[in-house]
């Protein structure tokens, strides 16, 4: 059974159809890239899976669970973590605290425990150690104490990745992780994603425009245009697909 199944999902914003009967499935352990021209609905799909957008129809199933029956804050608890196309960090917290926020769903402790302080101390220490480990892995340990603002863009993107990893997810969703990165950084990022998948047994769903990276690291590519799927297969398959060539290079190709 596929880990994530998206079936016939439709989203409209007023008169605009953002997603039109989109459906595909991702197997556990694979790196799947979602590609397509701007406005194809890739980020919209991410936001449907995160429950930030309500689809008009269709279903989204993760590990057998109907995601559309859950509230947005419950998604993280099912084992899904994501990053954002435009960074969504918490500037009022330090880098390490931002990463610890990522672990919110897999930890417990309410207002009373928080106010009394004592019973959560050891857990808090373990959590901080976990976060430091993730930061260390991504080469971010030197900035752990720095507020999560005023750092280079590539660093901020890695902090978001660290926050997603702190959730110890089964499915990691990355929304344009390579955008704004230098050529070298993109190469490193590809290796990092593959390494993380291998080490943590992750499944990765990736929205990316950087074709070199997409073709280099993913086993599965889903191509979208105007809210619909136009191709689905291995990188080799989709890159030979006439519809994909048409969508990317225009009518004359």
């Amino acid at each position: 059974m596929a880990l994530l199944e998206v079936d016939d999902v439709g989203v409209r914003f007023g008169g605009v159809v953002a997603l039109d009967g989109l459906g595909f499935a991702i197997e556990e352990g694979e790196i799947c890239a979602l590609i397509g021209p701007n406005g194809a609905g890739k980020t919209t799909l991410f936001n449907v899976i995160s429950r930030l957008y309500e689809p008009s129809h269709g279903s989204v199933t993760f590990a057998g669970e109907d995601l559309l029956a859950l509230a947005p804050h419950e998604i993280a608890g099912t084992g899904i973590a994501r990053t954002f196309q435009n960074l969504a960090l918490v500037p009022g917290l330090s880098v390490v605290d931002n990463v610890m926020i990522g672990a919110h769903a897999r930890t417990s402790g309410g207002f009373l425990a928080g106010a009394l302080g004592i019973p959560v101390r050891t857990r808090e220490r373990a959590l901080r150690a976990d976060a430091m480990e993730v930061l260390d892995r991504l080469g971010l340990a030197p900035v752990a104490a720095h507020p999560a603002v005023g750092l280079p863009y590539g660093t901020l993107k890695r902090i978001e990745l660290a926050r997603a990893l702190a959730a110890r997810p089964r499915l990691l969703m990355l929304d344009e992780p390579a955008s704004g990165l230098t050529h070298e950084e993109v190469g490193e990022l590809g290796a990092t994603v593959v390494g993380l998948r291998d080490d943590f047994g992750l499944t990765v769903l990736l929205v990316e425009h950087h074709m070199g990276m997409v073709m280099g690291i993913s086993e599965h590519v889903v191509v979208m245009e105007f809210g619909q799927k136009i191709a689905d297969g291995t990188p080799e398959e989709v890159s030979r697909d006439p519809k994909v060539i048409q969508a990317y290079l225009g009518g004359g190709a």
Binding site: L52, E74, V90, H104, R106, R163
Partner: peptide, 18 residues
């Protein structure tokens, strides 16, 4: 941490499970 996350970025807080 959840409270500050809500203050600074409600979406980020929600997606993290707050």
């Amino acid at each position: 941490r959840g409270l500050v996350a809500i203050r600074d970025n409600e979406t980020a807080a929600e997606v993290a499970g707050v």
